[in-house]
Design a protein around this nucleic acid. Structure first.
Lengths: 176, 176
DNA sequence: TGACGCATGTAAAACGTTACATGATTTG
DNA sequence: CAAATCATGTAACGTTTTACATGCGTCA
C-alpha cells in the first residue's frame, strides 16, 4: 500500500482536491494512516500524468482555485488491482514505547510524565473518534469496523496506562 | 526517534554487533519498532565515524568475524539527550485497515478472508510474545510494560476480529 | 494586526527498504 | 543436498517529511 492506492480509494467515493483528501483522511483513517500535503500533491500530479485521474479546475471566489480530481476507468482498474493484491504487514513505530523500553536509563519522574502525557493524548484521540462516530451514523459497515478498531485500541491503551501508572506510583510511595 | 537512538539504547545494555542488535530487536521491540540490516549497518558506521561507538573486531572460528560495537561516553551523552527530548508521535500504517475501510469496493469473501488471515497473524504474534514473556522472567519493570502492551493489543485485536467476523458471517447467511 | 483556514505546489534532505554480493557452517 | 543461520556490507531506489513560497478572507 502506498499513498496512490489510498487516494484512488477516496476518489472512488467522490471527486476531491488534494486539500479535501487530506481533510478527509484526518477524520477517517488518521488513526492508521497518515500523509502530508508534500506527499499528496506530487502523487496527484503523477497520477494525472499516468492517466489514473483527471483534473478539473474549479473557479472559486474569495478562495484559491480548487483542483478537483476525478478517477478515470484506468484508475478504477488500478484500484481494483490493489484491492486484490496481497496485504502488506502493518508498520508501527512508537517513540513512546521505545522510551519506556529503555526506561531504566532515565528518572522515574520522566517515565511517569511520559505515561501521563500519553494517556492524555490517547484520551483526546478517543474523544475525537467518538465525535466522528456520532457525526456519521450512516457510514458503511466496514468503515464502522475500522472506527470500532480505533475506539477499542484507545480504550485498551487508556486502561493499561491507568493501571501501570498506579502501580508505579504505589512503588514510588513505598520508597518513603 | 531514529535508528541511531534505538541502537544507542541497546548498546547501553551491552556491546553488540549489528547482527546481534537486529536479533535482539526481533524478540523485544519488533511489535512497535522495526529496522532492517540495510538501516542498521550504515547507522553503526556513521555512529563510529561520529564517535558514539567504538568497533572491536572479534575473530571467530567457523563463523564470519564479528564487529562488536561498544558505546562511548559521547554516545552515552547523546542517548541521554535523546531520552530528555520531546517524544515523537506514534506512526502507524495499516494496509489491512485501509482495505477494510474501502471494503465496499470489493467482494465480501475477500474481506472475510482478510480478517481471518489477520486474526491468524495476530494469534501468531500473541504466541510469540507469550513465549518471550516466559523466556525472560527477570526483565525490568519497564520492559515488562511494553510486553504487556503488546499482549493486550494482540488480545484486543483477536477479540474484535472474532466478533466482527461472526457478525459478517451471520449477515452473509441471512442472504439465503 | 496577527493568526488561522483555505488551497496549491516545489525542492532538498532525511530516511529507509530491497536486492544483491559473499561465504562458511550447521541442520533437516 | 538444500536451506537456514551466522555475519557484513553496498548501491539503487523509493518514499516521505520539512521547509519554503504564495495569497486571499475571516475572525479575535
Amino acid at each position: 500500500m502506498n499513498i496512490q492506492n489510498v487516494i484512488l480509494g477516496f476518489l472512488s467515493e467522490e471527486p476531491m482536491s488534494g486539500y479535501d483528501i487530506k481533510r478527509k483522511m484526518e477524520v477517517t483513517v488518521a488513526h492508521f494512516f497518515d500523509a502530508s500535503f508534500g506527499a499528496i500533491y506530487p502523487a496527484l500530479r503523477r497520477m494525472e500524468k499516468d492517466g489514473y485521474v483527471k483534473k478539473e479546475v474549479i473557479q472559486q471566489e474569495g478562495k484559491p482555485n480548487k483542483n478537483l480530481y476525478v478517477i478515470t476507468s484506468k484508475g478504477q482498474e488500478e484500484f481494483q488491482q490493489y484491492m486484490e493484491s496481497p496485504i502488506n504487514p502493518t508498520i508501527m513505530r512508537s517513540d513512546f514505547l521505545i522510551r519506556l523500553f529503555f526506561g531504566k536509563f532515565t528518572k522515574e519522574e520522566n517515565i511517569l510524565q511520559w505515561m501521563e502525557n500519553e494517556k492524555e493524548d490517547v484520551k483526546r484521540d478517543l474523544e475525537s473518534l467518538l465525535e466522528v462516530q456520532s457525526n456519521s451514523p450512516n457510514t458503511d459497515k466496514y468503515k464502522k469496523i475500522t472506527l470500532e478498531y480505533g475506539l477499542e485500541y484507545s480504550k485498551m491503551k487508556i486502561k493499561l496506562l491507568d493501571t501501570q501508572i498506579k502501580f508505579l506510583r504505589e512503588e514510588y510511595k513505598e520508597k518513603f
